[in-house]
């Protein structure tokens, strides 16, 4: 039950885009067509799903206060949590590099359509914040952390696909010239965020 709760919560209530505005840069830049944005959404979900559990283990056994106690009792006082930012980003950059090579090998079409945004997943705030939220909220075990990562990824995927679909339709509407493109996308995202706020306090 706890798992389902975390899953639903991370998709809807704590949606990365509508509740925390994370990963906005690629969200705004890639959301012109549904197809590309779905590809990016899947890539982000995949990277989250791999990096969060790895960073969970890293945090649990190396970085958290007293985490080194399993090596020897004399290290029980050591607190390496100030290193967590560097360690997390190193893990993420390495994994993204690997994903990039795999995608290039097996799906050149997707690789070409994602272009520069594939390497930039490394600096996508949504991926980094997945690890940081995991650390801050203190999930009880690796299962919960993984479910949280999956949920956040799916939430991000849904958000970018939804906005891409809306932007495809927007091409036929009369928008004031100064508001076209980025401006109207911001406002629509804000309105979608308001709609998503109705999930607040939702519990299973």
């Amino acid at each position: 039950m706890e798992y389902i709760n975390i899953f639903i919560k991370s998709i809807f209530v704590d949606n990365m885009i509508f509740a925390f505005f994370l990963g906005m840069c690629s969200y705004l830049a890639v959301s012109k067509t549904v197809k590309t944005s779905a590809g990016l959404g899947i890539a982000v979900t995949f990277v989250l799903l791999i990096t969060v559990p790895i960073n969970y283990l890293l945090n649990k056994f190396f970085l958290a206060p007293g985490a080194l106690a399993w090596l020897s009792p004399s290290l029980a006082e050591v607190d390496l949590s100030f290193l967590s930012l560097i360690m997390f980003i190193a893990v993420i950059a390495a994994i993204v590099q690997m994903v990039e090579m795999v995608v290039e090998k097996f799906s050149p079409a997707l690789y070409n359509s994602l272009g520069i945004f594939l390497p930039l997943i490394a600096v996508n705030c949504a991926v980094m914040s997945g690890s940081l939220f995991m650390q801050e909220r203190g999930y009880a075990n690796i299962g919960e952390a993984t479910v949280f990562a999956l949920g956040s990824g799916i939430g991000w995927f849904l958000a970018i696909v939804a906005i891409a679909a809306i932007r495809e339709k927007l091409r036929y509407s009369h928008i004031p010239p100064a508001l076209r493109g980025v401006g109207i996308t911001f406002i629509i995202t804000g309105l979608m965020g308001l709609a998503f706020m109705s999930f607040m306090g939702f519990k299973l």
């Binding site: 100064a178 401006g183 996308t185 406002i187 995202t189 804000g190 309105l191 979608m192 965020g193 706020m197």
Partner: peptide, 13 residues
Amino acid sequence: PPMALILVGLIIW
């Protein structure tokens, strides 16, 4: 939070 987005949209406008 959503109001921040709408405000930025208006500033851009």
